[in-house]
């Protein structure tokens, strides 16, 4: 193998031979060429010496650390992190791939703009307080007198007498209305009376006045059971027209407060959903 004839294939072979990365056959080929030509031998030997020299070059110490800082790649980091957030499923989905109806309901409630949602929640709490206050007021106005209860439940004749007495002074006795509830609770047989429901919820004088005829009409159907209580109920219903004026004022205030708060809850909640949808868009 003449060095002047070293083509690319032979260059590959010489490099591999110098590195000891040849087959037995290839090594024999190169060594035969070296034996045949001093020039080839010189070529191979000097290359081997050169490689040895290069391999003895000391490694260079690291001058400093090349770790990156956030500032150097801030734009890429931001892009990747936002992308990772979008692609990553929320933890609730990871824990339970199929949501229960309750979880869906909770997520539905938790959606929307936080401030408006909190305002709606506050309005809902106020609404609940109004309901409670209204109920308490109603109990105060229509609540049972303990003595009457005892009378109606234990001695119907006494209740009848009481009813007769109260019929004389029904327009002036505001506490007579309490007997109705007492009669209902005591006898347990007038619970189906729709008049009671109308009165207790609305406290409206028109409805009360119009419906107070019903117990009277029903009385003949069950005379033996209804007669004492019906008598007293009639008195009570008429007596309720004489509710405390300040109590009526509170009932009216509560009624309007209730309406306003219901509207506030609905409007605020809808606004929170709308704002959240606009924010996502």
């Amino acid at each position: 193998m003449d060095p002047q004839d070293l083509n690319s294939v032979d260059e590959d072979l010489v490099a591999a031979y110098v590195d000891g990365d040849v087959t037995t056959e290839e090594r024999q080929r190169v060594e035969a060429a070296m034996a045949a030509s001093e020039q080839v031998a010189w070529e191979v030997n000097t290359l081997r010496q050169t490689v040895q020299l290069l391999q003895e070059v000391p490694s260079v110490p690291l001058p400093r650390s090349f770790t990156l800082t956030e500032d150097q790649v801030a734009d890429v980091l931001q892009e990747r992190r936002s992308l990772a957030r979008v692609e990553a499923p929320p933890p609730s989905q990871v824990d339970s791939p199929v949501d229960t109806a309750w979880q869906q309901f909770l997520r539905f409630l938790n959606g929307g703009d936080l401030a408006l949602r909190n305002a709606a929640a506050l309005a809902a709490v106020l609404l609940l307080l109004v309901f409670v206050a209204e109920f308490q007021l109603q109990r105060t106005q229509l609540g049972p007198a303990p003595g009457n209860t005892a009378q109606l439940s234990s001695t119907p004749s006494t209740a009848q007498e009481t009813a007769a007495d109260s019929s004389l002074s029904e327009q002036t006795d505001p506490g007579a209305g309490n007997s109705q509830a007492t009669a209902d609770e005591g006898s347990g047989q007038e619970d189906d009376d729709p008049v009671v429901g109308v009165m207790s919820t609305g406290g409206e004088e028109q409805s009360t006045a119009g419906s107070e005829q019903e117990p009277v009409a029903a009385a003949p159907v069950q005379p033996e059971t209804n007669s004492p209580a019906a008598g007293s109920g009639q008195e009570q219903l008429t007596g309720s027209n004489d509710a405390d004026p300040s109590g009526q004022l509170w009932v009216t205030i509560f009624r309007y407060a209730r309406i306003l708060l219901v509207l506030a809850v609905i409007v605020l909640w809808l606004l929170s959903r709308t704002r959240a949808s606009r924010g996502r868009a």
Partner: peptide, 27 residues
């Protein structure tokens, strides 16, 4: 790659031989 390595070695050798006084005696 092998071909390039071989040529590179040859050129480095030639470069070094021009400053032989700095080279180790064996080389």
């Amino acid at each position: 790659v092998k071909s390039r390595i071989n040529r590179a070695r040859g050129r480095v050798r030639d470069y070094l031989s021009k400053n032989a006084e700095l080279l180790p005696a064996v080389y």
